[in-house]
Simulated assay, not measured.
Amino acid sequence: MTQPKIFISYRQADNRPFVLRIRDWLIQRYGRDNVFMDFDNLPPFVRFEDYIKEHIAKVDAVIMIVGDKWLEMLRQKEADEDRDFVRIELQTAMQQRKPVLPICINNAPFPARRDMPPDLKPLCDINAAILSDGRSFYDEIERTIHAMEQALHFTPPPPPPAQTYQPAHANTASNYHVSPTPPAVSREVLQDLLKRAREASTAQKYDESLILCNQILQFDPNYAEAYAQRAVNYYYTWKSNEAVEDCDRAIALNPVDNFSYNVRAWAYYQLGKYANAISDATISLGIKQSANTYWLRGIIYEADKRYQNAIDDFQRYIDLNGDSAAGSIADARKKITELQKKLK
């Protein structure tokens, strides 16, 4: 196989920001088109069950995310005689003989065989991987992905040779050379260049900031903060696709950098891709609670006409005593008043 296609089965009650974090790692490794989650890819006006069955037929494996609400929700849906789409996903995977790869997150235990319905008991024979949302995450996710690739008999391709990289639609000033052995430049020099790039951007000298970011990336193509700063410049010059691409690279290098998620959320907002923007802002909040990120997500919810969600986020902004260039407490209160009128 060129790249494995992965379906992520999860319960939305089970620490969704952490599931999104896992999804982002898989996307960075295998590509956005090879990782499926229902809220990412589900088109409008389709029967969920039919679409899921059709999509599972196209993937190579189903990752089963088990959080502390997994078994509780299974029992609740059985008691309510409600359709359990997670159960349908897993049933479909087994019927189609797709590998099911269970991952328990944040110390959640895998359900005991006695607690599983008969149709899901075979899953208890599979040793589950364990992922925790802490310092050990990096080692655990790498081990988990390696084990998954072994189970799928997939060998990752070798890294590409040195090449000149240029984001889509970028101008010639955006080129930089990706070298497997960057020139020896001290960290202090790179930090000074980044400081100057940020200062230039703050002064709205975006071309100057871009040049400085490109210089950093010539010296060190793995400098995540330089990609993030360059994305800021692209955002402010309405090059939203380039901003998204640079944030993708920054997040691949540092998946716990909430700043890159925020910049990508703003870029998606600029593109009108509100679902993606909300997803990134939510991941950012899962990494770090920030008044400014609540403001950001409130703005996106408002644009998406999800007014109650926007009100809730602007209220959280106020509760956290947020006050920034993006908005003030007075502005947040004004927005809440305006949005409450729209709900009437």
Rank of each mutant, 00 (worst) to 15 (best):
E81V: 12
S136V: 08
P158K: 09
A93D: 01
C104F: 00
D139M: 04
I88Q: 04
P109R: 08
A129L: 08
L101C: 10
R114I: 14
L120M: 05
P99A: 08
P117M: 03
Q150A: 05
D119A: 15
R143C: 04
Q96L: 15
V86S: 00
I105K: 02
R113A: 09
A93Y: 00
M94R: 11
E149W: 04
I105W: 02
A129P: 01
R114Q: 12
A93S: 12
Q95S: 15
T155K: 06
L101D: 01
E89Y: 01
T144S: 11
V86T: 13
C124I: 13
R143T: 11
R143K: 15
K121C: 13
M94F: 08
R87H: 11
R83D: 08
Y138D: 15
L131Q: 06
I141E: 04
L152V: 15
T92R: 03
F110N: 00
P159S: 14
D82A: 13
E149M: 09
D133N: 15
E89Q: 02
P99T: 05
I103C: 07
R113V: 15
K121P: 06
I126E: 06
E149K: 02
D119Q: 11
I105V: 14
E149T: 14
Q95I: 09
R143W: 06
R135I: 08
L90E: 00
P157N: 08
L120V: 05
I130S: 01
L123F: 01
I103P: 01
P159G: 12
N107P: 02
R97L: 10
R135M: 13
H146V: 11
R113S: 07
Q91D: 12
R114E: 13
F85I: 10
Q96I: 07
I141Q: 05
P118W: 02
R143M: 10
N127E: 10
K121E: 14
D133R: 04
V86Q: 01
N106I: 07
N106G: 06
I88W: 05
Y138L: 08
I141A: 00
D115K: 01
D84M: 07
N106V: 11
P159L: 13
R113D: 02
A129Q: 10
I126S: 07
N106Y: 09
L152A: 15
P118I: 13
